[in-house]
Simulated assay, not measured.
Amino acid sequence: MKDPSRKRHIAKALTWRIVGSVDTVFLSWLITGNPMTGLKIGFAEVITKMVLYYLHERVWFSINLSKSGLVRENKMRHLAKTITWRMVGTADTMVLAWLLTGNPLTGVKIGLAELLTKMILYYIHERIWYRIDYGLIDRVEM
């Protein structure tokens, strides 16, 4: 039997990547002053972030937070996912920006700028997806 949650995680990865890439392009453009640099960084991260986000979702899906053996979904879990994802995502953006601009300080500036914007956007994304049943067989409210 196929795991329906995989479809959900792929859909979440796609929607998040759209939101995240638009944010990265915009911030990179603002910081470097060059829209092409913003586009290069934004497009470069599409593949790396899709893979990293999918893996992050699979790890969090497997984490069992309740004594009854059910995965618990709540605001604290979403906050924890937000923080862990942001750590992974920021590191990826910093490295990509450094490699594409040749300047490590540019990578740090873009990464730090993303910390706030992406955490807010990711939390909102998580809350929206929590309300969507796509890819779930049964949802247990706790």
Score class of each variant (00 low, 15 high):
residue 26 F to L: 14
residue 67 K to I: 09
residue 54 Y to D: 02
residue 104 P to E: 04
residue 83 I to H: 00
residue 81 K to M: 14
residue 115 L to H: 08
residue 126 E to Q: 02
residue 74 N to Q: 07
residue 100 L to M: 04
residue 127 R to N: 06
residue 26 F to P: 01
residue 53 Y to G: 09
residue 71 V to F: 02
residue 18 I to K: 03
residue 76 M to L: 15
residue 5 S to L: 12
residue 9 H to Q: 13
residue 28 S to Y: 06
residue 112 L to E: 01
residue 70 L to C: 11
residue 73 E to I: 06
residue 130 Y to A: 13
residue 35 P to K: 07
residue 26 F to I: 15
residue 28 S to N: 08
residue 25 V to A: 04
residue 52 L to K: 02
residue 20 G to F: 05
residue 63 I to E: 07
residue 32 T to C: 11
residue 142 M to D: 14
residue 72 R to F: 03
residue 35 P to R: 07
residue 41 I to G: 08
residue 115 L to I: 11
residue 53 Y to D: 02
residue 52 L to A: 15
residue 71 V to P: 01
residue 108 V to Q: 00
residue 127 R to M: 10
residue 24 T to H: 02
residue 23 D to F: 15
residue 53 Y to E: 05
residue 48 T to E: 08
residue 98 W to V: 10
residue 92 D to Y: 07
residue 86 R to F: 09
residue 27 L to V: 05
residue 98 W to D: 08
residue 130 Y to T: 12
residue 68 S to C: 12
residue 97 A to Y: 05
residue 68 S to V: 13
residue 123 Y to R: 08
residue 27 L to H: 01
residue 136 L to M: 13
residue 17 R to G: 10
residue 130 Y to E: 14
residue 112 L to V: 12
residue 79 L to S: 04
residue 33 G to F: 10
residue 44 A to W: 05
residue 109 K to G: 10
residue 90 T to A: 10
residue 128 I to V: 14
residue 116 L to F: 10
residue 20 G to Y: 02
residue 115 L to A: 09
residue 105 L to N: 11
residue 125 H to M: 01
residue 49 K to S: 15
residue 70 L to E: 14
residue 131 R to M: 11
residue 119 M to L: 09
residue 22 V to Y: 00
residue 62 S to F: 06
residue 89 G to A: 09
residue 22 V to E: 00
residue 95 V to N: 03
residue 112 L to G: 04
residue 129 W to M: 01
residue 21 S to A: 14
residue 87 M to G: 13
residue 131 R to P: 00
residue 133 D to G: 02
residue 53 Y to N: 12
residue 83 I to D: 01
residue 14 L to K: 05
residue 4 P to N: 04
residue 80 A to R: 12
residue 58 R to N: 04
residue 61 F to Y: 14
residue 103 N to L: 06
residue 109 K to C: 11
residue 94 M to S: 09
residue 60 W to R: 00
residue 61 F to Q: 15
residue 132 I to R: 12
residue 110 I to Q: 03
residue 142 M to Q: 13
residue 104 P to S: 00
residue 42 G to L: 01
residue 110 I to T: 04
residue 48 T to P: 13
residue 122 Y to K: 07
residue 82 T to L: 11
residue 78 H to S: 15
residue 63 I to D: 03
residue 12 K to M: 14
residue 129 W to A: 01
residue 99 L to N: 06
residue 25 V to G: 03
residue 94 M to N: 07
residue 31 I to K: 09
residue 64 N to S: 15
residue 25 V to W: 06
residue 131 R to I: 05
residue 42 G to C: 01
residue 63 I to N: 01
residue 75 K to P: 12
residue 69 G to C: 06
residue 57 E to D: 12
residue 39 L to G: 08
residue 69 G to I: 09
residue 135 G to L: 04
residue 66 S to V: 02
residue 138 D to W: 13
residue 40 K to L: 14
residue 85 W to G: 06
residue 114 E to Q: 15
residue 3 D to V: 06
residue 110 I to N: 00
residue 8 R to Q: 02
residue 43 F to W: 05
residue 84 T to P: 03
residue 97 A to S: 14
residue 33 G to N: 05
residue 109 K to N: 12
residue 44 A to D: 03
residue 74 N to L: 07
residue 9 H to I: 10
residue 94 M to H: 06
residue 112 L to C: 05
residue 138 D to I: 15
residue 119 M to A: 09
residue 138 D to Q: 14
residue 10 I to W: 08
residue 15 T to Y: 05
residue 119 M to S: 11
residue 22 V to K: 03
residue 107 G to W: 04
residue 42 G to D: 00
residue 74 N to H: 07
